[in-house]
Computed example of a mutant assay.
Amino acid sequence: MATAEERVPSAARDMRAHAAAFVARVTRNRLPLDYSVASLRVVDFLIDGLRKGGADPERARGPLVGLGAYVGEVLVRRAGAVWVDFDADQRAYFGQTAGVRMPDGRVWNPLGKVHNRFATGGTEDSLQTFYLTLHGRARRVVA
């Protein structure tokens, strides 16, 4: 029998599965999304391609959510983060229902970071740079 926690819908609980489904779809095209830090450069490239292809934010919504879930899962696997449901204040601030909590307790919004990269297209919003300059990472690689 499911516990009360398992019966309550959880955006955080769904993110790992969402990332895996997204990777399964896009790796059929031989894109190197292997949850490595280096693969975040591919994420930057994919987002830039959506922008250059003229995708409007609504049409790009599905791929951007998939990419955001993927970035979050890289943080989980490589930086020691855990998926968390945002509380009401965090949802209002971030505009998302879930994010990640780092080992030092900091909370980050990978879906929002992906949306920012799409909106600005600027190198200052690079997802690879985001990871490399991220505060609160674990020093060890999490498999």
Rank of each mutant, 00 (worst) to 15 (best):
A69Y: 10
D104E: 13
V71D: 09
L67C: 01
L33K: 12
V26E: 10
R59N: 12
L127P: 11
R61C: 07
V8S: 13
V71K: 06
D89M: 15
R140H: 11
R137G: 00
D125L: 11
H115V: 04
D14E: 15
N116G: 06
D48S: 08
V43A: 08
V8H: 12
T97R: 14
G80P: 00
A92D: 09
V23F: 01
L127Y: 10
M1I: 08
A17D: 15
R13P: 03
A12T: 10
R61W: 04
A143F: 02
A17V: 11
V100W: 02
M1G: 14
A12W: 07
R117I: 00
S10I: 08
V37K: 15
P110D: 07
D44Y: 02
L50N: 14
F22P: 01
R77C: 03
E73V: 02
S126I: 04
G62L: 13
A79S: 02
E124P: 00
A2D: 10
R59W: 00
D89L: 09
R139M: 10
M1E: 13
A60R: 04
S36A: 07
F130M: 03
E73K: 03
A81G: 09
R25S: 15
V84W: 12
P110S: 04
R77P: 03
V84K: 05
G49A: 15
Q96Y: 08
D44V: 08
H135A: 15
Y35M: 12
G66N: 10
V71E: 13
T3C: 14
A60P: 04
M15E: 14
A19D: 08
Y70T: 06
G105R: 11
T133Y: 01
D125T: 13
D104G: 05
H135V: 05
V82C: 01
G72E: 12
F94S: 11
W108M: 12
V142G: 08
R16M: 03
R140I: 10
D56P: 05
A60D: 03
V26A: 08
Y70I: 10
R7K: 14
G112K: 06
V74F: 05
V142H: 14
G72W: 14
G68R: 03
T27C: 13
R61V: 02
V37D: 07
V76A: 09
A19E: 10
V84M: 04
V76L: 04
A60Q: 08
V82F: 01
F118L: 02
V82P: 00
R91I: 11
M1R: 02
K52W: 02
F86Q: 03
V141H: 13
W108K: 07
D14L: 01
D44E: 01
M102Y: 01
A12V: 08
Y35H: 15
A69R: 02
G80F: 00
D48F: 02
A17Y: 13
G122H: 05
G68K: 04
G68V: 09
G136H: 01
H135T: 10
L31S: 05
L127F: 11
F45T: 10
H115C: 02
R117T: 03
R61I: 03
Q90G: 04
R139D: 12
G95P: 09
D85F: 12
F130L: 13
V82Y: 03
R77Y: 05
G53A: 02
D87P: 05
E58Q: 13
